[in-house]
Nucleic acid binder design. Structure first.
Lengths: 137, 137
DNA sequence: CCATAACTCTATAGTCACTATAGATATAGA
DNA sequence: TCTATATCTATAGTGACTATAGAGTTATGG
């Protein structure tokens, strides 16, 4: 049996975050000692690992809840799980594209400014005047 | 003079968001009609445009507050403004790199799953077992 | 057996940048 | 003057935590 601090150390998820996951219904409610402290067995550790991994990949709590629910029914079709992953992949790709446009714009703004004072600063002028931008964002 | 709805339409910033910016000290407090409604002149419109543009580029409220403060002193050196933009550029680039790693991992997870049921679903197995991953995230 | 240190408990509030809602008031046009 | 639309304030909610206070529990060393 592990204390909450132990599974925190092993998974890298902070203690209050584990309690938060329990409250949100991601982690099953842990057994308790007579004094009321949480004790986890192997299963709890695995479950938290699953959640951590999914969070690291950027999946929302909501999506993870769905995946956990699916995982509890091993014989149902997995289209739904595939769909969740695929949809998330699309949103990650969109986000990358958007950030690349911002990167280009920021670089242009940053490197063009050779002025010494705020009055002529290209960074500030560019922010004030959208027409100085090269693409949409 | 523009109503709050008008500058909202012209800039694409929602009405409650404009009031929020005023509360946060980004927008100067607007003049009021005898009945207490906000009225903006050209300056307010420009200021909101500046904020919108900076937000679209992903700058934080805090960073924008700094830039506005700088903008009010046109003869001070603009190193600080350049630094804010450059630092943000670095953080955007880091974020892009991180998302690219996630994208690769998600794609691998998504495309490998040919199973029909949750029991064998690669998406779910990969989430449960970090050792199936190819790189760190 | 007891003191103590380290850990854990709950409940609540704060973070960021909004967004939504309720209920009241103001304004513009017919 | 009526009415539709817009606006006002104040408050609460969003997501995914993080921080804090104050109390209680557990493990260890003497």
């Amino acid at each position: 049996m592990y204390t909450i601090g132990e599974i925190s150390r092993r998974t890298g998820v902070k203690v209050p975050t584990i309690r938060y996951y329990e409250q949100m219904g991601l982690m099953a409610a842990a057994e308790r000692t007579p004094g009321g402290q949480r004790r986890y067995c192997r299963e709890g550790l695995d479950q938290l690992g699953f959640i951590k991994h999914a969070r690291d990949l950027g999946l929302s709590i909501e999506a993870i809840r769905d995946l956990i629910r699916l995982n509890a029914h091993p014989d149902t079709p997995c289209d739904e799980a595939d769909r969740i992953a695929a949809e998330h992949l699309v949103s990650v790709r969109n986000r990358i594209e958007q950030l690349k446009r911002l990167e280009a714009e920021l670089q242009r703004i940053s490197t063009q400014c050779k002025a010494g004072t705020v009055k002529d600063c290209y960074v500030i002028r560019a922010l004030a005047d959208h027409s100085l931008c090269e693409n949409e964002h």
